[in-house]
Amino acid sequence: MSHGSGGRAMAQLIAELFAAAFDNEYLAQGNDGALLPQAQGRLVMATDSHVVSPLFFAGGDIGCLSVHGTINDVAVMGAKPLYLSASFILEEGFPLADLNRIVESMAQAARAAGVPIVTGDTKVVEQGKGDGVFITTTGVGVVPDGIHLSGDQARPGDKILLSGSIGDHGMAILSQREGLTFSAPIVSDTAALHGLIAAMLDSGVRLRVLRDPTRGGLATTLNEIARQSGVGMMLHESAIKVNQPVEAACELLGLDPLYVANEGKLVAICAPADADRLLAAMRAHPFGRDAAVIGEVLADAHGFVQMTTRLGGRRVVDWLAGEQLPRIC
């Protein structure tokens, strides 16, 4: 791929590539923006930039990841995702075949999710000024009346539910990037969760909080919620599923799976009386098959997220400032 004098030809090529792959009526309008029909309900808009190395990994690639990530950000607001935009920053010299693969994967993810990519943009930067490809996606959705999901809604006594195993995405990326192999391959969990969320909302349970624990992992997400709601939490290590190869990899590398990124998991908080029904609704959906109640919300002015460990002790699961710096003196 080149930039400079051939730029226009290149842009043309890419535009055609996208048009063919994402093909939908709004994109076909051919204008600078997509004109969309009126929507019912409050609008939700979310944007996410995707930078990942390697671009292709077990369970996905940057293309489907950029679709899933933004759909999930819209969906955890309680919204039905409607449209996506996509913006590409390509590094000069990026193999066209790889781009093709990524675009195809995005298109497939968007089609499977039923959320069209209605507008987009591409820029090409000089070699060395990018890292292959960066993709920014923006999503728009609508929240039906009566749904109010927010991180500040958790109340003491509430149950904390997790849709499945943790750490899969982060460890899949890491092990692939570093060429580490484990007893079984580690596969990213990247997935669009709006279907699962719709099923949860349809169960009739009033959800209080919904989040997808992406960067920073489950620990960071729960700490954010605890701070927003002014509550503490007690988690139970034994209830938090970590797939065996992920656990082994974390142990080996000295990482805590609680802080490792996920791309297809969600955390839900609901009143204790609703927990069983919500759990049943989650487990009935393929992306919630391994859902579990992993803990309770506590009254705690300090907002400590604690965990009972498998050894029978307790510890605080902190909100770390950055990477896991050594602390043992």
Binding site: E178, G179, L180, A248, E251, L252, L253, G254, L255, P326, C329
Partner: peptide, 23 residues
């Protein structure tokens, strides 16, 4: 069991911080 992988980590400097710690 992880000895081989730790060699790999050392080769790649993967999660390999350094410390001047006497401990």
């Amino acid at each position: 069991g992880g000895a081989e992988m730790v060699v790999g980590m050392l080769q790649r400097r993967l999660n390999c911080v350094t410390s001047s710690s006497m401990g």
